[in-house]
Write a protein that binds this DNA or RNA. Sequence first.
DNA 1: CTATTATTCTTATATATCTAAGTTTATTGC
DNA 2: GCAATAAACTTAGATATATAAGAATAATAG
Lengths: 171, 171
Amino acid sequence: MTKRDVRETESVLRHWHQQVPDDRMAHLVRDASRLLAKSLQRRLAEHGVSFGHWSFLRILWATEGLSQRELSDQAGVMEPTTFTALKAMEANGLIERRHLNGNRRKQHIFLTDKGKELKDVLTPLAEEVNHIALAGVSEAESEATRKTLLTMIDNLAVDNQSSESEGEPDG
Amino acid sequence: MTKRDVRETESVLRHWHQQVPDDRMAHLVRDASRLLAKSLQRRLAEHGVSFGHWSFLRILWATEGLSQRELSDQAGVMEPTTFTALKAMEANGLIERRHLNGNRRKQHIFLTDKGKELKDVLTPLAEEVNHIALAGVSEAESEATRKTLLTMIDNLAVDNQSSESEGEPDG
DNA sequence: CTATTATTCTTATATATCTAAGTTTATTGC
DNA sequence: GCAATAAACTTAGATATATAAGAATAATAG
């Protein structure tokens, strides 16, 4: 590790341990999110899977045959994000896209054997990252944090949704 | 608001209130981060400022004259991210990039009047988003969450850093 | 059963980020 | 003081996301 690497990390940490502005929570969440992604990404890359693809695999391991629209909803991302990811995953041989019951609009997504087999390989990696991240955090703190994040997600979903409907007619 | 919009939000929320996998914390953090960004982004856009630019403005309002390298450290992003953002901010008339003391390597960043004036306009927007997000969260929960996130950031910084130095010689 | 509307997928384009590699400039060790 | 090394910035190209708009298809209202 170079001197610069050390300085870099120290700077990020010092930043957080010293500054206390009013919007601190948002920044903490953002930094934690970036670092979590980075840690997992590095591990997934060793198995040729990107972070974005993993998030769809994870849903498909639980429920196969969802349409792209339904996958987007569950992943909490927009259709174009899903579309791009699924096309790449199809090219990588992780999934298949099929029309069902003669419906030529909806694309239903199914795992290939390769996609299925990755479950047992990748799941422990995500659990490992979570475990590393939460080292030294008590169960009570962890639970309070989950509860707070859930409340934040609920609150922000309302905020973002109410703005979407601005100007639209009632009913 | 269309039926689809409602279904979408409901799907995201149901997802969180029902599923409890082992890597749940990482997903909660990620979702919260995305929604926080979205809420703030929408507000900033009304003033012609993007989310990425805001994060650098915020640092510069506290400390002007930092080099790009120092700004990258404080923002917790890589130099190319900083570079791209600063070039755009320069083009938008928010900042100036200057060489100091005849050093032609370091670029020091200074706010223009326009950049300075945005502080009082944008800061309340970030505070508003934080306030909305944390509605109904007790001070104790909020504090426990900050503490947990800080621990996670520390833990993950170590994880990411130790992997960087893999294979490098000692000393 | 046809015209309108809504849904789903797709394309195009933009933002925010990254890693890897290149260039210029400064620092350091003989 | 010059060669080697390191630092700082820049460029190139990739990933993950978004919004806006287009195309195909299904559902619905009359």
